[in-house]
Simulated assay, not measured.
Amino acid sequence: MKAQRFLMLIMVPALALAVTAAQAQPRPGWPRSVTIGSASIGGVYFVVAGGYARVIGEKMGLPATNRVTGGPVQNIQLVATKEIELGMTTMGPAFEAFNGIGEFRGRKLDVIRIAFPMYTSFAHWMVSADSPIRSVTDLTGRVVSLGPRGGSAEFVGHRVLELFNIKPRRIVYLGFADGATALRDGVVDANFGVIGIPVPAWVEASITRPTRFFGFTKEQIETLTGRYPYLARAAIRAGVYRGQDEVIHTVQMWNAAVVHKDMPDDFVYELVKTIFANRDFLATVHPASNETLPVNVFYTRLPLHPGAVKFYREQGVRLIDDQIPPEMKRS
């Protein structure tokens, strides 16, 4: 029933925002509009970005657009090249981009700045209920979807396959809605997601046909968290999806919204302030936004935008040295 209620919720038009005393007005130097880089249709980013767009439009008086992208990796690239104003990403790609390692070796993108924390993404797999696949070690010789190109599932998935020497017969990169359809049609054997829960397209899949979900073993979790500093152990509560009656043990990564360092300080300050002020509405768009709290900026641990620093300091949030951007340390 929880899954059914959530599916109904995301199909209903967004609820009206709470009335505020005054709207922020665009100021000199502010962008004339805000394009939000989200991800594929059927995923959590796409749903949450729709909420951000409405908040920015109604509360800041700026036209805002939810742009379908490949997800976290591509969004960092689009922010760095100033093709979008706000990018949704996870801390793995953000960490590697800022430091010019891993996925971003040889193309350091240290112009990105954290604006605000979003929520936790959980790594988990979806297969048909009658599938013989019970663990990641069973994926050798199978057809596996690692989510859309540029997404967190691709980012983490390739590291999982390499680390545990898993050799699928074929790897495909499908959005979450397309991946669920491909699983139903027998085109793929397993879908991987590193994403906020519940995944809308996977909720629907679990309602329309028997499915099964799994994560990682204790030993696999220890190996993953020991190798990658941006991963942490986690558990997905029972009942997130229909038929998922047990806790799923897995790993997690935090999501954050990023902007370019050249964005005006007062714009980013108002953006961050407005998002947090409307968290209750955003939680009606997707429950993952219940985690969008100022204190959770602790989990980002990369340089913040100066406008964001001002907001968190006003809120009494303790920041570590790594979160203070170089441009503030020089001043």
Rank of each mutant, 00 (worst) to 15 (best):
V143H: 14
S40L: 08
L161Q: 01
R279H: 04
F6G: 01
R279P: 05
T211P: 03
A16H: 01
S38T: 05
P210R: 02
F164K: 09
A235G: 06
N255L: 08
G243M: 05
P287A: 00
T140G: 15
T181W: 11
A234D: 05
D280F: 10
K273D: 13
R242S: 13
Q323E: 09
F311Q: 09
V34Q: 00
E162Y: 11
G147P: 07
R134C: 06
S289Y: 10
P13F: 09
G179T: 07
G226C: 06
K59Q: 15
G179R: 11
R209D: 06
F104K: 13
R142M: 08
G157I: 14
P148R: 09
L139K: 10
N278T: 00
F311M: 12
H305E: 11
R169G: 03
V47I: 15
Q323Y: 02
A14Q: 15
W30T: 07
F213Y: 12
A153L: 03
L293D: 10
D178R: 15
I166T: 00
V79C: 07
K59Y: 06
Y299S: 14
G37V: 00
A201W: 10
S135E: 12
T211D: 05
R233T: 05
N290S: 12
I236S: 00
M91F: 08
L304K: 12
A190N: 03
N191H: 11
G147H: 06
T284I: 06
N278F: 00
L17C: 03
A288T: 05
P148A: 14
F46W: 11
V297S: 01
S40T: 15
L109A: 14
T217Y: 13
Y269G: 05
F298Q: 02
D245S: 10
Y119P: 08
L78A: 02
A22G: 07
R318D: 13
K218N: 01
A49Q: 00
G239P: 10
W254T: 14
D321N: 14
V172H: 11
T140S: 15
A180P: 09
Y312I: 04
G57I: 09
G61Y: 11
T69I: 03
D178E: 14
V297D: 03
K261Y: 13
G196A: 01
A115Q: 10
A22I: 11
E58W: 07
I101C: 02
V317C: 06
L15E: 15
G243K: 02
I56P: 02
G106A: 08
T120R: 12
P198F: 05
R27C: 07
M8G: 10
F192T: 04
E154W: 12
E327S: 07
Y269R: 14
A16N: 01
G61F: 11
K82I: 07
R159P: 01
T217N: 09
